[in-house]
Simulated scan of single mutants.
Amino acid sequence: MSRVGSGHQRNASGDFAACRQFFANGRPPVLAPQPTQRALCYDAFAILHSGASKTPVYVAEKLNRAAVADADEVRTNRFFADARLRPAERATLGDYKGSGFDRGHMAPAGNMPTAQAMAQSFSLANIVPQAPQHNQGAWRVSVEAATRKYAAKASGDVYVITGPVFLPSIDESQGIGPGNVRVPRYLFKLVYDEDRNRAWVHWHRNDNATRAAQPISYEELVRRTGIEFLPGVYPRG
């Protein structure tokens, strides 16, 4: 089952050597590598991208009081296909046109600390097809805004990993557009407070009817996805 500077780095493969600061202890999640997965570094986040789904596998950020206070950029809304990805492995603007789905950010535009980071957040590599009312409602308010609010009050760094979950598999998931960009059944956002060694996970059905829900534990996220998102870390719930 498939679950899930002067600009950003140009290398579209590798092991995040240029942007390990976005991962707790500098260690990215552990999962079986796939031929079309690419590691992408941006100014304010890192993405493991899947050419099979044409979406992120996950997107990693590091938030803290200073970062949230600095996140006051004007939203650009200029979506673009990331040229570092092979044409056959990336989403395009045409895939989302008339699809009925929003272009849902995994690393939110509202978290971006600079104009350049804001522009980079509109890469389609950072986007999944998301139910519009969910994107603009429960996800935006009870997940994204709540996470920013928490990080703004935290005593240290808060590591955040966000991504889609495709069930029963990527190939069996709905596709949109000429590129067949896959639609996830669920979205998750893992929040890890390093100072308190606490973690929790927002787990939402990608559906217009979805409302705010109690977070699940980190252990439950690992069980559901089969991915160790915080290798070497044993957080409390």
Rank of each mutant, 00 (worst) to 15 (best):
G175W: 11
A125F: 10
L85H: 02
H134W: 02
N197E: 13
P129F: 02
P33Y: 15
T147H: 08
H8Y: 12
G232I: 05
G94Y: 09
D193T: 02
R198V: 04
G179D: 11
H134A: 05
Q34Y: 10
T162Y: 05
K149E: 14
A81T: 14
D207C: 06
V181H: 09
E73C: 02
N135P: 10
V59S: 03
D157R: 01
L48K: 05
A154E: 13
D193E: 10
T36G: 00
T162E: 05
F229P: 06
F16L: 12
P184M: 00
N180S: 15
R78Y: 15
R223Q: 11
F122I: 09
V160F: 07
H202R: 02
D102I: 01
R140V: 01
Y234G: 06
V143T: 09
R196G: 13
A212E: 09
F229A: 03
D102N: 15
I176F: 07
E61L: 11
H49F: 09
C19D: 08
I216C: 12
V141Q: 13
R27Y: 04
R211T: 14
A91L: 01
A154R: 09
E220N: 10
Q9M: 07
G104S: 03
Y42K: 05
T92P: 04
N135C: 04
K149V: 06
D157S: 11
D43P: 05
N25Q: 15
G51P: 10
G226I: 03
A138E: 03
W200P: 13
R27S: 10
F188T: 07
R20I: 06
